[in-house]
Simulated assay, not measured.
Amino acid sequence: MIIVLLTYKVSTEELDTSIDAHRDWLMASIEAGRLLAAGRKVPRTGGMLLARGDLDQVKTWAATDPFAVNGLADYDFTEVAVTLTADGLDGLK
């Protein structure tokens, strides 16, 4: 599993011009089985993605995010080998 942390490089007003395309990309990624979870940082300075695949695959996929395509966010990738999960989260292993 790869944890992807986004850090916004622009104001939220500028970011919001691409939010619908970003959400469409997220939903398509869930349907394709690549994305497990996503959410905003609090306060709203970036976001978090939990993705399936190896590091190179996830980096290539993340580069297609409208936020990346439009230069709105920086991306930090951390690969994790999940060994323990709470009940109901076995799919993260």
Rank of each mutant, 00 (worst) to 15 (best):
M1T: 05
G33M: 03
R52T: 08
L35K: 02
A51C: 10
Y8M: 13
I2L: 12
L72Y: 04
L26D: 10
D74N: 14
L36W: 04
T83D: 00
G39Y: 07
M48V: 06
D76S: 15
S11L: 05
D90H: 10
T60P: 00
Y8T: 15
G33I: 12
V4K: 01
W25K: 03
I3V: 11
S11F: 09
T78C: 07
E14A: 06
F77I: 13
I3S: 00
P66Q: 12
L50M: 08
A63I: 01
I30C: 01
A73F: 02
L35W: 01
K93A: 07
I3G: 01
V10M: 13
D54F: 15
L36Q: 00
R52V: 14
A81F: 14
G46A: 10
A37V: 11
A68G: 07
E14M: 09
A73T: 13
L92D: 04
K93V: 12
V69K: 15
G47C: 13
N70L: 02
L26P: 01
L15V: 02
M1S: 11
T12Y: 15
D74L: 13
L84D: 02
I3E: 00
V69P: 15
G71C: 11
A38R: 05
R52Y: 05
L84P: 04
G88F: 11
A38C: 01
L5M: 14
A37F: 03
R40G: 13
P43M: 09
D54G: 01
T45P: 05
D24P: 04
D56F: 03
A28V: 06
G33C: 07
E31S: 12
L92I: 02
F77E: 01
H22E: 02
T17G: 08
D65L: 07
V42A: 09
M48N: 14
G71D: 05
G33Y: 05
A86M: 07
L89Y: 12
V82I: 15
V58W: 04
D76Y: 14
G39S: 11
G91R: 11
G39A: 15
Y8W: 10
M27C: 10
W25C: 02
R40V: 11
L35H: 00
T83S: 15
D56T: 08
L6W: 02
T7P: 11
A81I: 06
I3C: 00
S11H: 13
T60Y: 04
S11G: 09
E13I: 13
W25G: 08
I30V: 08
A86W: 03
A63Y: 05
H22W: 00
D76P: 01
A51S: 03
A32I: 03
D54K: 14
S29D: 00
T17A: 09
G46C: 12
R40L: 05
Y8R: 04
R23Y: 05
G33W: 13
I30R: 06
A37G: 09
M1N: 07
L36S: 06
E31A: 14
G71W: 12
T78G: 03
L84M: 09
R44H: 08
A32K: 15
A81T: 09
A51G: 02
H22R: 03
I30T: 12
V82P: 06
D20V: 10
L5Y: 12
D16T: 07
G47P: 10
D74Y: 06
D16I: 05
L92E: 02
V58H: 00
K41H: 08
L15R: 12
W25D: 00
D24F: 04
